[in-house]
Nucleic acid binder design. Sequence first.
DNA 1: CAAAAGAGTTGAACAAGTTCAACTAGCGAA
DNA 2: TTCGCTAGTTGAACTTGTTCAACTCTTTTG
Lengths: 191, 191
Amino acid sequence: MSYDLLKQHIKKNVNLSVTELNQICDYFKPLSFKKKEFLLSQGSLCRFEGFVTEGCFRVFTLDKKGNENTLYFAAKDWWLMDIDSFMHQTTSDLNMQALEDSEVLLINREDKIALYEALPTVEKLFRIMFQKGLVSWQRRLVRNHCLTAKERYFHFIETYPDIASKLTDKQIAGYLGIRHEFLSKIKKSEN
Amino acid sequence: MSYDLLKQHIKKNVNLSVTELNQICDYFKPLSFKKKEFLLSQGSLCRFEGFVTEGCFRVFTLDKKGNENTLYFAAKDWWLMDIDSFMHQTTSDLNMQALEDSEVLLINREDKIALYEALPTVEKLFRIMFQKGLVSWQRRLVRNHCLTAKERYFHFIETYPDIASKLTDKQIAGYLGIRHEFLSKIKKSEN
DNA sequence: CAAAAGAGTTGAACAAGTTCAACTAGCGAA
DNA sequence: TTCGCTAGTTGAACTTGTTCAACTCTTTTG
């Protein structure tokens, strides 16, 4: 059952009773997405947070020049959120698109706020999750400054082989912040 | 009094009574740093989190090639933390150095954990802070991918004029992820 | 199945940013 | 005051990554 994955995920971060875990799960509703379908488009309001239980999503921005910049990929066991739009109900800059047929557990804004109130441990859960997230974004920025595109490419495919194997080179290039033509040249060059 | 700044900072994020604010402040001890002094050096364990009440710090890493990469500057009203080293007591990759004579309110690891337990609202406070932090790191990475060094330079000095005015060009270059020689050329070129 | 759209490759010309070395200017400490 | 250190500047050669256009190969779709 898809809720099991969410429960496992939560248990990795905080201690909660079975009852409490079920209570949390009650707030989440499963939803399916077909390949290429959008869970969120820029310009709209983000009314939910999602936990991926099957498949994979790409979260990206589109700048004025039409360049797609991928913030992250969300495979099974990852969260999908536009924190800023969700919390402040401002229009979103992000797009979330299914890379393959996917399943997500969704919680909407009102329920998330209610959940924080109902179970204070959920504050701790998300405090820890955001804390971890912050660290990995910091590290990613440092890698962007210190490493060449080639080094970043190999770091990515070695760190996330399962995700990388689902992606086109164009999508990987968008994540690394380079043009796909250049990624093609990187792959051709000796290791 | 330096604690007032911390109280104001907290009140911007969560609702707490005067008593509770004082209770939080009790966990923090003031400490002074002379210009160029280090609050943390890479290789050591980070045993504290700090809130800057006066002055300014630079938080940076040093890679194998000897390049300094600045993660962020922490002026008055900013936090100084190495989240990873602090939480998991692993050796730190970060250096925190005072750019001028500075004052910090410090809380150590045991007290931070105790504070989370004593006042559950503190979980919420840090959940919100980390959440905001995560958003700004995401945005910074996107800027790094989409903007040129020149655009990033102007974005920085326009967004943080007060901090920028305290910094040398070398330090700004380290933050932008470019060599200082190139920053010199950017500044010389027409706007 | 056929047509069209998208993914990947390649080369040539170009732009962005680095490296190194040499120089100038200013500041801090003794 | 003087010495030495660090910051900043500049130019030339170089490396990294982009752009554009042309082409091939798959995949999707009607």
